[in-house]
């Protein structure tokens, strides 16, 4: 038996600039039951707080709900591992929610073949903002990107959609099956994961040439 190994805070992320979660990677447990606590203080304060919620974010995580989240403020945090033989603290991590915004992927991606007035067919893609994100108040502004590729291709073709949640793609090959994904990014922040892959087959008789 030995004191626990050193835990490492590996990632902190806010999906909508209103809450955030941090995750850590435990070190060795020294062969003994080991308990982990996350403590922090905020810029300009001396009070040491403990993690308000160890559950919502899953194992080895701390979730800060709106009540505990302050933007434009540095959180100075550390994870402490404790067992019967002693305790070991992680390195300090400085976190400002402003700069860790990474939304969830867009949802409800739907694909449709439509015809324009002059009978040309095109692929119509539409989606919704990720769950839990309030894009109506203007607190979080999302921009979107689409990628698609023919079934057998390896290279994706990417299109930037700006702030809109629908997109029209012309010039696709009749009879060909296509895969489509969408992702999003806040005005200042990180790209989300790509949405689940959706596919559609262009009808053989579709007149896609413009």
């Amino acid at each position: 038996a030995s004191p626990p190994g050193k835990p490492v805070i590996v990632k902190c992320r806010s999906p909508e600039k209103e809450t955030f979660t941090c995750w850590w990677k435990p070190g060795s447990n020294g062969g003994l039951p080991t308990n982990y606590t996350l403590t922090y203080y905020k810029e300009g304060e001396n009070i040491i707080y403990e993690c308000p919620d160890y559950t919502t974010g899953g194992p080895n995580s701390c979730f800060f709900s709106r009540k505990y989240t302050t933007i434009w403020t540095i959180y100075v945090m550390r994870v402490n591992a404790t067992n019967k033989m002693g305790n070991t603290a992680s390195d300090v991590r400085f976190v400002d929610v402003t700069y860790i915004v990474e939304p969830n992927a867009p949802q409800n991606v739907t694909l449709e073949i439509k015809k324009s007035q002059d009978r040309e067919a095109y692929l119509w893609i539409k989606w919704l903002a990720p769950t839990l994100v309030d894009t109506r108040s203007g607190w979080l502004i999302l921009q979107y990107e689409i990628r698609l590729k023919p079934e057998k291709a390896t290279e994706w073709e990417t299109h930037y959609a700006g702030h809109q949640t629908n997109f029209k793609i012309l010039n696709l090959s009749p009879g060909q099956k296509y895969f489509v994904q969408v992702r999003c990014k806040p005005d200042h922040g990180f790209w989300s994961q790509w949405s689940q892959e959706k596919s559609i087959k262009i009808p053989g008789d579709a007149n896609m040439n413009v």
């Binding site: 109506r136 108040s137 203007g138 607190w139 005005d187």
Partner: peptide, 18 residues
Amino acid sequence: VDNYLKFLKCQIAYDGSC
């Protein structure tokens, strides 16, 4: 400033709903 202006635009110029 950037965050507040984007928020104010939706609140003032779009009646709270962009």
